[in-house]
Computed example of a mutant assay.
Amino acid sequence: MSELPYACGTPPLAARLRASPEDFQVEEILGYDADGVGEHVLLWVEKRGANTDWVARELAKFAGVPQVAVGYAGMKDRHAVTRQTFSVQLAGKTDPDWSTFPHAEVKVLAATRHSRKLKRGALRGNRFVLVLREVQGDRAAAEQVLQQIAVRGVPNYYGEQRFGREGGNVEQARAMFGGRRVERDKRSFLLSAARSHIFNNVLAARVERDAWDKPLDGEIWSLAGSRSWFGPEPFTDVLAERLVRADIHPSGPLWGQGEPPTQAEAGALEREIGAANSDLAAGLAAARMDQERRPLRLLPKDLKWRWLDDASLELSFELPAGAYATVVVRELATV
């Protein structure tokens, strides 16, 4: 991630993030409530230093159901304190005593019946409370960067978690496209890493042109809060007003079959970067991935900050599903 260009210039601070799990807190926002009836139960779970998929497996064992009966909307950071919802299908079964779940690092805080299994991606977003420790640097410049982020947002890069240890998922994707066999579950991670790599490269080029939060000719627009997109079309006063309101965002490619829908300058840039990563682009097309879009701009909602002491800075904000808190932090501090 360090090689990707910054929107706000060199970060004014250096700090330590995740000095303890409590310094990285995440709360999932589903955007809807349990309906109170049905053969599924929605569990509101707090985990500390635990992997989401591991928690799902342990919940299945505890409930005496197959792992496929457990659902969750999104993976959460392991080195953190996170609260999220899991669904467990209990067809014809009574609820176990969730308070006796046998892992100290996991607490079931609430359980409510529901009619459907949670699906991956079925959430509105996440709320974060992060603490930077051992902070050094220019506090006045940091205040300016935070003000800029609050107004302008940050480039919506995929975070380093997407690329595996030392970024190895991209090279593994290249090997897979070259013929190496991989397990089915790992295949989906490698496809995602390949798409994310091309997207980040397009976004980096747009940041270098100072065009990540403004359109290029031939732009495709992402609708805020959805996966829908439209364009290209002339940049009118109506579109300019919607851009200011954050109803729409410039977008970048999630590579797949066929050509990106962008045209003119935006299209030329995306095709140039696709050609520079031709093995990944061809592999994604061969895997029959569709051409999709992702916003280039990320606007943290309700961004707040306060100094806990001379060397500790707390940040809180909400992000939409699929966005990374670490790409907000990277504009402010090297961690």
Rank of each mutant, 00 (worst) to 15 (best):
E3F: 12
E3K: 14
L4V: 00
P5Y: 13
Y6E: 04
C8A: 14
T10S: 12
L13K: 03
A14T: 15
R16A: 13
S20M: 11
Q25P: 00
Q25W: 14
V26M: 02
E28S: 12
I29T: 14
D33V: 11
D33L: 12
D33G: 08
V37K: 14
V37M: 12
G38L: 01
E39M: 10
V41N: 06
W44A: 05
V45G: 05
R48W: 00
N51A: 08
R57N: 05
A63G: 07
Q67I: 13
G71F: 07
G71K: 00
A73G: 15
K76S: 10
D77C: 01
R78E: 08
H79D: 15
A80D: 01
V81K: 02
T85K: 09
S87C: 12
V88F: 13
Q89F: 06
Q89C: 15
K93W: 00
D95E: 15
W98K: 07
S99A: 11
T100F: 00
T100S: 13
P102I: 02
V108H: 13
A110W: 13
A110S: 14
A111T: 05
R116Y: 09
K117S: 10
L123G: 02
R124N: 08
R127N: 01
F128T: 08
L132C: 04
G137T: 05
A142E: 02
E143V: 04
E143T: 12
E143S: 13
V145Q: 10
L146G: 01
I149V: 14
V151R: 14
G153E: 05
P155W: 02
P155Y: 06
Y158V: 04
Y158P: 07
G159H: 10
E160W: 10
R165M: 12
N169W: 04
V170S: 04
Q172I: 03
R174Y: 01
R174I: 09
M176D: 01
M176H: 03
G179K: 02
R180P: 02
S188I: 11
L190Q: 06
L190D: 04
A194Q: 07
N200M: 10
L203N: 07
A205P: 09
V207G: 13
E208K: 15
E208C: 11
R209T: 04
E219W: 06
W221P: 03
W221T: 03
R227H: 14
S228R: 15
G231S: 07
E233Q: 15
R242E: 12
R245I: 06
P250V: 14
S251A: 15
G252W: 11
G256H: 12
E259W: 06
T262S: 15
Q263K: 12
A264E: 09
A266I: 02
A276E: 10
N277L: 03
A281F: 07
A285Y: 05
R293Y: 03
R294P: 05
P295Q: 07
L298V: 00
P300L: 08
D302K: 09
L303G: 00
R306E: 14
L308T: 13
A311Y: 01
E314M: 10
A321I: 06
A321M: 03
A325L: 11
T326N: 06
V327I: 14
V328P: 02
R330N: 00
